[in-house]
């Protein structure tokens, strides 16, 4: 028994080491860095709460939180609804169902660079598809990505992120829908339930754990969003303060300005915010998520 236990430790050792070195150590070290000055090249220097003080007084950090908050408010519910709707449609008896599933999943595997180029063209102020449509019905073109209005820019980017992410969430919800027993749906129909009643009273409650998971994952990914902003707004140094998001700010401070201390403080600030939101989601879970 004792020997078996040792072998167990031996086999889990690579995973434990990987966890210690690549997760726990950076986690603890970055917390230490929030109280230190480090330019990556020279030894760290303890500076107490200065990074946190600067963070709280840094206007661009608060702007970035406003933007990412707005982004999450748009992205999470819209993406979840889009995924639920697509999953419901693709769970019906349709001809060419596999082809539709593939089409809706394609954006997930499309590289950001390619997807971003297409959306930049769609949003182009002078030659873009969207403005061409607007102009053809007599509406003035809109400067979607380079607008001076932060909410328009962030909203436009949220749409791109929904396009990219809905397919993945759709697959998760679809997996839940395919587990609904046909007998249950049949029984409901025999009792006189129409399509909407079936969807709202049976399908949605049964897939609610999946929807909940999608919402948790989408919220975290919204606050982690980096690639989509980088692709849509140009390079890291071109992002205006009014359109800033925390991850671009963290990247800029750490790897461009070599200020690992302030970047770590921002990363920890963001972590605490995501933690609070996730706890809130967990607390409200019981009100609408149904487990069998």
């Amino acid at each position: 028994m004792r020997k078996q236990g040792l072998w167990g430790f031996a086999f889990t050792l690579p995973f434990v080491l990987q966890l210690l070195i690549f997760f726990l150590f950076p986690f603890v070290f970055s917390l230490y860095l929030t109280f230190a000055k480090w330019d990556l090249f020279n030894p760290t220097q303890w500076i107490g709460l200065r990074n946190w003080d600067q963070l709280l007084h840094q206007k661009v950090f608060w702007l970035s939180l406003r933007n990412v908050g707005f982004f999450a408010v748009l992205f999470v519910p819209l993406q979840t609804m889009a995924a639920l709707f697509l999953a419901y449609l693709l769970n019906q008896q349709l001809r060419g169902k596999s082809l539709f599933r593939l089409v809706f999943f394609l954006p997930v595997i499309t590289p950001w660079v390619a997807g971003g180029m297409i959306w930049l063209w769609i949003y182009n102020h002078e030659y873009g598809l969207l403005n061409w449509i607007l102009q053809s019905i007599g509406i003035q073109p809109v400067d979607w990505i380079r607008s001076g209005n932060w909410w328009l820019v962030i909203g436009s980017i949220a749409v791109v992120n929904i396009w990219k992410g809905a397919g993945y969430s759709m697959v998760l919800i679809l997996a839940g829908m395919q587990n609904i027993s046909k007998e249950m749906l049949e029984a409901a129909r025999m009792d006189g339930a129409n399509g909407w009643t079936l969807f709202s009273k049976i399908t949605v409650p049964i897939v609610s754990p999946m929807v909940y998971m999608v919402m948790i994952l989408s919220t975290i990914s919204a606050f982690h969003a980096f690639d989509v902003f980088l692709v849509m707004l140009g390079d890291v140094i071109s992002v205006a303060d009014r359109n800033m998001v925390p991850n671009i700010l963290i990247y800029r401070d750490s790897f461009l300005n070599f200020k690992m201390g302030s970047a770590s403080a921002m990363a920890w600030g963001l972590f605490l915010i995501i933690l609070i939101i996730t706890i809130f989601q967990k607390v409200t879970e019981k009100r609408w998520v149904h487990y069998e």
């Binding site: 071109s238 303060d241 461009l256 300005n257």
Partner: peptide, 9 residues
């Protein structure tokens, strides 16, 4: 790099 990033946008 840092001041250029501040001025660029």
């Amino acid at each position: 790099n840092e001041w250029r990033a501040a001025a660029g946008p």
